[in-house]
């Protein structure tokens, strides 16, 4: 056909830069990134702040570590209840999951309470809440580190 012209001469389209390419990521790279993200999440759970430190997010790492450490020290100091694996009811089991969220700090809290909990006063009850909060906060931080490692969040 005489009217037909090459496409390159009729379009002003600019080639897409590499960063916004719509091509899917190779499966091997995706698997590697997923494995790395899971490792970072496990590290973040085990030692609060370590996940963000591995991602070179120093401020967040320091804050996560300090916040969880402070909550555990206060909670144990107020003689809050540290739940064990042999919980009698659903609340005790949930409390164990929340406390275990603090990773290695769960054992730090146990070591800081040689005489055991005392929830006969409101003080001990508040301590229980602070310990559970430390665990849940650390799980949230680990999830954040996982999402960052998977490049879903900044």
């Amino acid at each position: 056909m005489p009217d037909e012209v090459p496409v390159a001469e009729t379009t002003n389209a600019v080639p897409l830069p590499q960063a916004v390419s719509t091509y899917p990521e190779p499966t091997q790279d995706r698997h590697r990134r997923d494995a790395l993200a899971l490792t970072i999440a496990a590290a973040a759970w085990f030692l609060p702040g370590l996940g963000h430190a591995l991602l070179k997010m120093w401020g967040r790492a320091l804050v996560c570590f300090s916040a969880v450490a402070l909550l555990v020290i206060l909670g144990a100091g107020m003689r809050g209840n540290i739940f064990s694996r042999n919980g009698e009811d659903a609340f005790a089991k949930l409390g164990y999951v929340a406390d275990l969220g603090a990773g290695s700090f769960y054992f730090v809290a146990k070591a800081l309470e040689p005489t055991g909990p005392d929830v006969s006063h409101a003080n001990g009850d508040y301590g229980t809440r602070l310990l559970a909060t430390a665990g849940v906060l650390n799980m949230l931080a680990a999830l954040h580190a996982y999402e960052v490692a998977r490049a879903r969040k900044a």
Partner: peptide, 8 residues
Amino acid sequence: ISIAFGFL
């Protein structure tokens, strides 16, 4: 908690 949430 506010500081931790703010940083995260």
